[in-house]
């Protein structure tokens, strides 16, 4: 336990000392918030042509806050964590850890705890900005939102550890991570509202883990209750990713 706590604390400090990762993970979602909330405001809208509600019938800012929390979590899972782990393997840091009898569970465990800490920090930044600046509402069911948050972080950190385990190099992790991040950002519910997307975009969107994380966070946030199908999908992704990581992890 002592070593897990020490390693986690060191990892949090290392994260904060890496300016590019901090900007990408914590500041980018804030910039999206400024743009989207600035463009769409926070009044529920109806499409004038079709008469359909967009943004699920709520104000755009309220719609996007849980989506951006999901985006922070996804950014940690598909970019920060895989790049960090592959760099550790490539440079021999994992080898150093292993030779000093650091267990694989300590290494993984610290990454999960760090993911929680950073996701929490990102969430606080988003909410603390959106409420005073754009009059966003607090979550309707905070308990359920918290449960959804925990599942989301666990699921995406398992995914991140898996990517870190199977991708051979830091370059590969950066390349694939950024592609995954931007595709998910645009199509999974953090970009244009689903109601205005084409059929093909819906298909891609439904194939991304972030879609289910956002739904799971958004429903209790907006007062639509717990989304069981989305949460089962997220848990499924978590279990499969965890099993595959344990199977494919290599120290060097």
């Amino acid at each position: 336990m002592r070593i897990l706590a020490k390693l986690t604390w060191v990892e949090i400090k290392l994260f904060i000392r890496e300016p590019i990762t901090v900007v990408f993970t914590l500041v980018l979602p804030l910039i999206f918030l400024f743009v989207m909330a600035g463009v769409f405001g926070n009044t529920p809208e109806i499409d004038p042509e079709t008469g359909m509600e967009i943004f699920r019938g709520v104000g755009a800012t309220d719609y996007y806050i849980p989506a951006y929390i999901g985006l922070v979590i996804a950014s940690i899972g598909v970019v920060a964590l895989p790049v960090h782990l592959t760099a550790y393997r490539e440079r021999g840091v994992l080898r150093r850890f292993r030779a000093s009898s650091m267990s694989v569970w300590t290494v993984f465990g610290s990454q999960v705890v760090v993911s929680f800490a950073i996701a929490m920090l990102g969430t606080i930044l988003l909410v603390a900005t959106a409420i005073p600046a754009y009059g966003a509402a607090l979550p309707r069911s905070p308990g359920l939102v918290l449960a959804a948050f925990v599942l989301s972080v666990l699921s995406f950190s398992a995914l991140g550890v898996l990517l870190g385990a199977i991708l051979p190099t830091t370059r590969a992790a950066q390349g694939l991570g950024l592609i995954l991040f931007f595709v998910m950002m645009l199509l999974s519910g953090a970009g244009p509202p689903r109601e205005v997307m084409t059929e093909a975009m819906h298909w891609i969107s439904d194939a991304t883990p972030l879609r289910y994380v956002i739904l799971m966070l958004q429903d209790p946030w907006l007062g639509f209750g717990w989304n069981t199908p989305a949460s089962l999908t997220v848990v499924g992704i978590m279990l499969v990713a965890a099993l595959l990581s344990a199977r494919f992890f290599r120290w060097e």
Partner: peptide, 24 residues
Amino acid sequence: CQLQESALPDRIRVWEALDLFASI
């Protein structure tokens, strides 16, 4: 063991590395 091909994270400080490995 002092390994030939190994490294530490770039931004870890000397005291942090010693403190971390001592706690194992």
